[in-house]
């Protein structure tokens, strides 16, 4: 026993190293599963508020770009005003309200923490459960798809950006309407992603628009990027290609969180169908 104690005190550096290292790795491992909300991240009150303060100062530097962007948005919206349309029939106006049921709602949020140069990049935004944001909602900007909400606190949420190892969702070629899966490329370039598992029947051309498909969390047709390179590693039955992203992630300022109002109905229905199938079996 005494010898053991002497041994431990002699090599105390090594044993302390083991204890702390295991502690750190346990924390890291726990967080890796991504579902377990953790105390140590930028949604907690202290770091979240520090980032919010810092972002307030930082916003002044990009006021000009934001102003340009707003002016552009205003022009686009003005073009959609009722007064800018010529109403050709009365009938069209009457059915207008009942034919269309609003499916998507957008909540605007400000990016307060962002990174593009890590293997797994996340974005923190300044809206949380108070604003009705929930996990697994899609996030877009006026340029295109940004990511998916993975963690929500009262006032902040964390978005898994497209530049993340685990991001993969359904996308399609705009002209062919052929679906594939979009992923971040291995070379960690924040401007390029990969569209993989595209059926061989598709005939993509360089410069073709890649948009969110109808099977994704995002409204169909939200742009993701343009095909920039077709000669990436081909894997037998499927085509792979490089896509230049339309969103400049390093300059992200404002994003929109997409609320799909029919989502609950859809998942409930699918769940019900699954249950019935199980009963038959």
């Amino acid at each position: 026993m005494r010898n053991l104690l002497i041994f431990i005190t002699k090599y105390n550096a090594f044993f302390l190293f083991l204890i702390f290292e295991v502690g750190a790795l346990v924390i890291y491992g726990k967080y890796n599963s991504f579902q377990k909300a953790s105390l140590i991240n930028s949604t907690n009150e202290v770091t979240g508020n520090v980032y919010a303060k810092y972002n307030e100062a930082e916003r002044y530097l990009s006021l000009q770009q934001v102003n340009d962007q707003l002016a552009k948005d205003n022009a686009a919206l003005r073009a959609k005003l009722k007064s800018s349309f010529y109403i050709d029939t009365l009938a069209k106006r009457m059915v207008n309200d009942t034919v269309y049921l609003q499916q998507y709602e957008y909540t605007v949020a400000r990016v307060i923490n962002n990174s593009v140069n890590k293997r797994n990049n996340t974005i923190t935004i300044n809206r949380g459960s108070d604003a009705g944001i929930q996990k697994n909602m899609g996030v877009i900007s006026d340029q295109g798809v940004v990511g998916i909400v993975v963690m929500v606190s009262k006032h902040f949420s964390i978005v898994m950006s497209l530049l993340h190892k685990e991001t993969s969702f359904s996308a399609m070629l705009n002209d062919d309407r052929v679906r594939g899966t979009i992923k971040w490329a291995d070379n960690l370039d924040p401007r390029v992603a990969q569209l993989v598992d595209v059926n061989n029947s598709a005939k993509p051309h360089i410069g073709e628009l890649v948009v969110a498909s109808d099977q994704s969390l995002f409204p169909t047709g939200v742009p993701i990027g343009r095909v920039s390179n077709l000669r990436t590693k081909t894997g037998g039955f499927f085509l792979n290609m490089e896509v230049t992203l339309s969103v400049d992630f390093s300059k992200l300022q404002y994003v929109y969180v997409v609320t799909n109002r029919l989502n609950k109905e859809q998942t409930d229905l699918e769940l019900k169908q699954k249950d019935e199938q199980n009963d038959i079996n």
Binding site: A13, F14, F17, F20, E21, G23, A24, L25, V26, I27, Y28, G29, K30, Y31, S38, L39, I40, N41, S42, N44, V46, T47, V50, Y51, N113, S115, K118, N120, T122, T124, I158
Partner: peptide
Amino acid sequence: TGLTVDAFYDTPGLHAAACVLLAF
């Protein structure tokens, strides 16, 4: 130190583990 930096980088444990190795 590692944990503080982790809090800002959203990677709990990652920097802490590297810093403990550094101390050793």
